[in-house]
Protein backbone atom coordinates (compact mmCIF):
# COMPACT_ATOMS: atom_id res chain seq x y z
CA UNK A 1 0.00 0.00 0.00
CA UNK A 2 1.47 3.36 -0.95
CA UNK A 3 1.67 6.43 1.26
CA UNK A 4 -1.46 8.05 -0.18
CA UNK A 5 -3.53 4.91 0.38
CA UNK A 6 -2.27 4.47 3.93
CA UNK A 7 -3.32 8.05 4.73
CA UNK A 8 -6.68 7.65 2.97
CA UNK A 9 -7.43 4.45 4.90
CA UNK A 10 -6.61 6.21 8.17
CA UNK A 11 -8.87 9.17 7.33
CA UNK A 12 -11.74 6.95 6.19
CA UNK A 13 -11.54 4.84 9.34
CA UNK A 14 -11.75 8.00 11.48
CA UNK A 15 -14.47 9.59 9.34
CA UNK A 16 -16.29 7.42 6.76
CA UNK A 17 -17.78 10.57 5.15
CA UNK A 18 -14.30 11.49 3.90
CA UNK A 19 -14.64 8.58 1.45
CA UNK A 20 -16.80 10.84 -0.73
CA UNK A 21 -13.75 13.00 -1.37
CA UNK A 22 -11.08 10.28 -1.34
CA UNK A 23 -12.68 7.46 -3.33
CA UNK A 24 -12.97 9.31 -6.69
CA UNK A 25 -9.23 10.14 -6.68
CA UNK A 26 -8.06 6.89 -5.11
CA UNK A 27 -7.03 4.94 -8.18
CA UNK A 28 -5.12 7.84 -9.71
CA UNK A 29 -3.31 8.69 -6.48
CA UNK A 30 -3.11 5.36 -4.72
CA UNK A 31 -3.00 2.78 -7.50
CA UNK A 32 -5.27 -0.21 -8.22
CA UNK A 33 -5.47 -1.42 -4.59
CA UNK A 34 -6.62 1.90 -3.13
CA UNK A 35 -10.31 1.77 -4.01
CA UNK A 36 -10.86 -1.79 -2.69
CA UNK A 37 -9.00 -0.83 0.50
CA UNK A 38 -11.41 2.06 1.12
CA UNK A 39 -14.52 0.04 0.24
CA UNK A 40 -13.57 -2.58 2.81
CA UNK A 41 -14.10 0.05 5.52
CA UNK A 42 -17.58 1.22 4.45
CA UNK A 43 -21.18 0.15 5.03
CA UNK A 44 -23.62 -0.73 2.23
CA UNK A 45 -25.36 2.68 2.34
CA UNK A 46 -22.13 4.61 1.86
CA UNK A 47 -21.01 2.27 -0.92
CA UNK A 48 -24.31 2.73 -2.74
CA UNK A 49 -23.96 6.53 -2.42
CA UNK A 50 -20.42 6.34 -3.85
CA UNK A 51 -21.75 4.28 -6.73
CA UNK A 52 -24.59 6.75 -7.46
CA UNK A 53 -22.12 9.66 -7.45
CA UNK A 54 -19.42 7.72 -9.29
CA UNK A 55 -18.13 7.93 -12.86
CA UNK A 56 -17.82 4.79 -14.95
CA UNK A 57 -14.40 3.95 -13.46
CA UNK A 58 -15.60 4.28 -9.86
CA UNK A 59 -18.69 2.20 -10.59
CA UNK A 60 -16.54 -0.50 -12.15
CA UNK A 61 -14.26 -0.56 -9.10
CA UNK A 62 -17.27 -0.99 -6.80
CA UNK A 63 -18.86 -3.75 -8.88
CA UNK A 64 -15.57 -5.66 -8.99
CA UNK A 65 -15.05 -5.31 -5.24
CA UNK A 66 -18.52 -6.56 -4.25
CA UNK A 67 -17.61 -10.27 -3.96
CA UNK A 68 -14.94 -9.44 -1.37
CA UNK A 69 -17.22 -7.26 0.76
CA UNK A 70 -19.51 -8.83 3.31
CA UNK A 71 -22.72 -7.05 2.30
CA UNK A 72 -25.22 -9.88 1.78
CA UNK A 73 -27.96 -8.88 -0.70
CA UNK A 74 -27.73 -5.18 0.34
CA UNK A 75 -25.76 -4.20 -2.79
CA UNK A 76 -28.28 -5.69 -5.25
CA UNK A 77 -29.60 -2.23 -6.26
CA UNK A 78 -26.08 -1.42 -7.51
CA UNK A 79 -25.96 -4.55 -9.64
CA UNK A 80 -29.45 -3.90 -11.01
CA UNK A 81 -28.44 -0.36 -11.93
CA UNK A 82 -25.35 -1.59 -13.78
CA UNK A 83 -27.48 -4.07 -15.72
CA UNK A 84 -29.67 -1.19 -16.96
CA UNK A 85 -26.67 0.58 -18.56
CA UNK A 86 -25.36 0.13 -22.09
CA UNK A 87 -21.70 -0.17 -21.05
CA UNK A 88 -20.27 -3.66 -21.62
CA UNK A 89 -17.70 -3.24 -18.83
CA UNK A 90 -20.36 -2.47 -16.23
CA UNK A 91 -22.67 -5.24 -17.41
CA UNK A 92 -19.91 -7.87 -17.37
CA UNK A 93 -18.85 -6.77 -13.88
CA UNK A 94 -22.47 -6.89 -12.65
CA UNK A 95 -22.58 -10.57 -13.64
CA UNK A 96 -19.52 -11.43 -11.58
CA UNK A 97 -19.60 -13.64 -8.46
CA UNK A 98 -21.78 -11.20 -6.48
CA UNK A 99 -24.51 -10.85 -9.12
CA UNK A 100 -24.42 -14.57 -9.80
CA UNK A 101 -24.91 -15.24 -6.07
CA UNK A 102 -27.75 -12.76 -5.40
CA UNK A 103 -29.70 -11.88 -8.59
CA UNK A 104 -33.10 -13.61 -8.85
CA UNK A 105 -33.67 -16.01 -11.75
CA UNK A 106 -35.48 -13.53 -13.98
CA UNK A 107 -32.89 -10.77 -13.58
CA UNK A 108 -30.02 -13.22 -14.05
CA UNK A 109 -31.48 -14.64 -17.28
CA UNK A 110 -32.13 -11.14 -18.64
CA UNK A 111 -28.52 -10.24 -17.80
CA UNK A 112 -27.19 -13.27 -19.66
CA UNK A 113 -29.32 -12.47 -22.71
CA UNK A 114 -28.14 -8.88 -22.61
CA UNK A 115 -24.54 -10.17 -22.74
CA UNK A 116 -25.42 -12.09 -25.91
CA UNK A 117 -26.87 -8.94 -27.49
CA UNK A 118 -23.82 -6.88 -26.56
CA UNK A 119 -21.19 -9.47 -27.63
CA UNK A 120 -19.97 -9.99 -24.06
CA UNK A 121 -18.55 -13.55 -24.04
CA UNK A 122 -20.70 -15.81 -21.86
CA UNK A 123 -17.47 -17.11 -20.31
CA UNK A 124 -17.41 -13.79 -18.40
CA UNK A 125 -20.67 -14.59 -16.61
CA UNK A 126 -19.81 -16.08 -13.24
CA UNK A 127 -21.54 -19.34 -12.25
CA UNK A 128 -23.43 -19.72 -15.51
CA UNK A 129 -23.31 -23.53 -15.36
CA UNK A 130 -24.75 -23.49 -11.85
CA UNK A 131 -27.52 -21.01 -12.68
CA UNK A 132 -28.43 -22.18 -16.17
CA UNK A 133 -32.04 -23.44 -16.28
CA UNK A 134 -34.66 -24.58 -18.77
CA UNK A 135 -36.12 -21.08 -19.14
CA UNK A 136 -32.72 -19.63 -20.07
CA UNK A 137 -32.28 -22.40 -22.62
CA UNK A 138 -35.64 -21.48 -24.14
CA UNK A 139 -34.68 -17.80 -24.28
CA UNK A 140 -31.35 -18.55 -25.96
CA UNK A 141 -33.04 -20.92 -28.43
CA UNK A 142 -35.58 -18.22 -29.36
CA UNK A 143 -32.75 -15.76 -29.85
CA UNK A 144 -30.90 -18.21 -32.08
CA UNK A 145 -34.08 -18.72 -34.15
CA UNK A 146 -34.46 -14.95 -34.53
CA UNK A 147 -30.85 -14.65 -35.71
CA UNK A 148 -31.27 -17.46 -38.25
CA UNK A 149 -34.54 -15.97 -39.55
CA UNK A 150 -32.63 -12.77 -40.27
CA UNK A 151 -29.87 -14.69 -42.06
CA UNK A 152 -27.34 -13.97 -39.31
CA UNK A 153 -24.91 -16.27 -37.56
CA UNK A 154 -25.47 -17.50 -34.02
CA UNK A 155 -22.54 -16.89 -31.65
CA UNK A 156 -20.61 -20.04 -30.78
CA UNK A 157 -21.04 -19.57 -27.02
CA UNK A 158 -24.82 -19.51 -27.48
CA UNK A 159 -24.77 -22.66 -29.64
CA UNK A 160 -22.74 -24.44 -26.95
CA UNK A 161 -25.49 -23.74 -24.42
CA UNK A 162 -28.11 -25.24 -26.75
CA UNK A 163 -26.35 -28.54 -27.42
Amino acid sequence: MNEWTTQAVRQTRADPESAHRLFPQAERKGGPRARPALLALLDAGTIEALYRNGDAGERLSILRALPDLDLGPAALPIVEDALRTNDTRLIAAALGPYGSRWLDDHAFRQGVLKCVFMSIPLAEVDGLDRRHDAELTRMLADHAAERRAAGRTVPEDVLERLR
Partner: peptide, 8 residues
Protein backbone atom coordinates in the same frame (compact mmCIF):
# COMPACT_ATOMS: atom_id res chain seq x y z
CA UNK B 1 -16.59 20.46 -6.44
CA UNK B 2 -17.24 16.72 -6.13
CA UNK B 3 -17.36 16.41 -9.92
CA UNK B 4 -14.06 18.25 -10.35
CA UNK B 5 -12.33 15.39 -8.48
CA UNK B 6 -13.17 12.88 -11.23
CA UNK B 7 -10.29 11.41 -13.22
CA UNK B 8 -11.55 12.50 -16.64
Amino acid sequence: PRYLLKDS
